[in-house]
C-alpha cells in the first residue's frame, strides 16, 4: 500500500496528461495516418505526409517557422544575458529598473503582438516618429516591418516578450552563483573578460540554455503571433495547420494533423539537438 502512494498522489495529474495531452497527440497521429476505425478508416497510410512533404507551400512554411524560432531564441537569449549582467550590480534606481524590466512578464503575447502592430505598421508610431525627424515623407516610405519577408515583426514580438522571461531566470541564476567565483578567479589573475568567459559564462550557461528550450518550443508552436504579424505567404506552420484544419474541405484534416505532428517532431528534434549541443558547449568550457 505504502509503495502505491506516490502513484496514487500522481494519478490526477497523470490522468490529465494522458487524456488531454497524450490522447490528443495520439488521435492526431492516428488521424494524420488516415487511421480512424471509429469512422471506418482501418487502413493506415502515409498519404497526408507524402502530401505535405511534396508541397512547396508546406516546406516554405516549415523553413520560415524554423528561422523565426531559432532567430528569436538566439537574440532573446543573448540580450537577456546582457540585461541580467547589467541589472546584477547595485546602482541607483536598480529597484525601479528591475521592476520595469519584469513588467511585461504577465502580458499575454496577443497584446504584445497588437502593440508591435501599432508600432511597426507603415502608419504606426515608429513611422510617425520617422516622419517627425524628416526620415520619411509618407507612410509608404517606411520599411515594411510587419507582414514582411524577414518576419521582423514576429521576431521583434518574441524578443520583446522573452528578454524579461529569460532575463529573470538569468538574474536568479546570477544571484545563486554569487560573485565569489569571480573574486577568486580575479585573485588568480583573471581579467574582466577572462572572468566572464571562463567563470561566469560556464556557470550560468546550463540554466540559461534550459530556460531557452521553453522559448524555442514556444516560438515553434505559437499561432497567434505569426497569424497577426506574419505575411499571408508563406505562413508559419501553426497558422498553416489551423487553416487546413478549419478548411471546409474535410479531406484537408489529415494533412493538418500531419503538420501538427511534424511541428511536434521538429520541436522534439530541435530541442534534443540543442540540448546535446549545449551539453557539449558546457563540457568544453
Amino acid at each position: 500500500m505504502e509503495r502505491l502512494r506516490p502513484y496514487l498522489m500522481l494519478s490526477p495529474a497523470l490522468l490529465i496528461i494522458m487524456l488531454f495531452f497524450l490522447g490528443g497527440l495520439g488521435v492526431g497521429l492516428m488521424r494524420s495516418l488516415n487511421y480512424m476505425p471509429i469512422i471506418g478508416l482501418t487502413e493506415p497510410n502515409l498519404d497526408a505526409y507524402v502530401g505535405i512533404l511534396t508541397d512547396r507551400t508546406f516546406l516554405r512554411s516549415l523553413g520560415l517557422t524554423l528561422y523565426i524560432a531559432i532567430a528569436s531564441t538566439a537574440i532573446s537569449m543573448t540580450l537577456a544575458v546582457a540585461s541580467g549582467l547589467l541589472l546584477r550590480r547595485s546602482f541607483r534606481g536598480k529597484q525601479v529598473m528591475t521592476f520595469l524590466f519584469q513588467l511585461n512578464l504577465p502580458i499575454p503575447h496577443i497584446v504584445g503582438a497588437i502593440g508591435i502592430l501599432f508600432l511597426f505598421t507603415q502608419g504606426g508610431f515608429l513611422a510617425r516618429a520617422a516622419h517627425a525627424v524628416h526620415l520619411i515623407e509618407q507612410p509608404a516610405d517606411f520599411p515594411a516591418l510587419v507582414f514582411d519577408r524577414y518576419a521582423i515583426g514576429i521576431i521583434a514580438e518574441y524578443v520583446w516578450k522573452e528578454i524579461p522571461f529569460i532575463g529573470v531566470v538569468v538574474l536568479a541564476i546570477l544571484q545563486a552563483v554569487g560573485d565569489e567565483y569571480e573574486a577568486l578567479a580575479q585573485t588568480l589573475g583573471a581579467n574582466r573578460w577572462q572572468r566572464f568567459r571562463h567563470v561566469l559564462l560556464p556557470l550560468i550557461l546550463p540554466g540559461v540554455l534550459s530556460v531557452s528550450v521553453i522559448v524555442l518550443a514556444f516560438t515553434l508552436g505559437a499561432y497567434e503571433i505569426p497569424f497577426m504579424l506574419g505575411r499571408s505567404f508563406p505562413q508559419a506552420l501553426p497558422v498553416l495547420a489551423v487553416r487546413s484544419y478549419t478548411d471546409p474541405d474535410l479531406n484537408q484534416r489529415p494533412q493538418a494533423m500531419a503538420m501538427a505532428i511534424v511541428i511536434t517532431v521538429f520541436s522534439t528534434l530541435l530541442i534534443l539537438a540543442y540540448m546535446e549541443l549545449s551539453r557539449r558547449i558546457v563540457r568544453k568550457e
Partner: peptide, 21 residues
Amino acid sequence: FLLLAPTIVPPLAVVLGIHVL
C-alpha cells in the same frame, strides 16, 4: 518525462486531436 512533455509539444499539435475526441 510525461509531466514535462507538454512544455516541448506545442498545444496546437495536441488540440487538433483533442478536438476530434
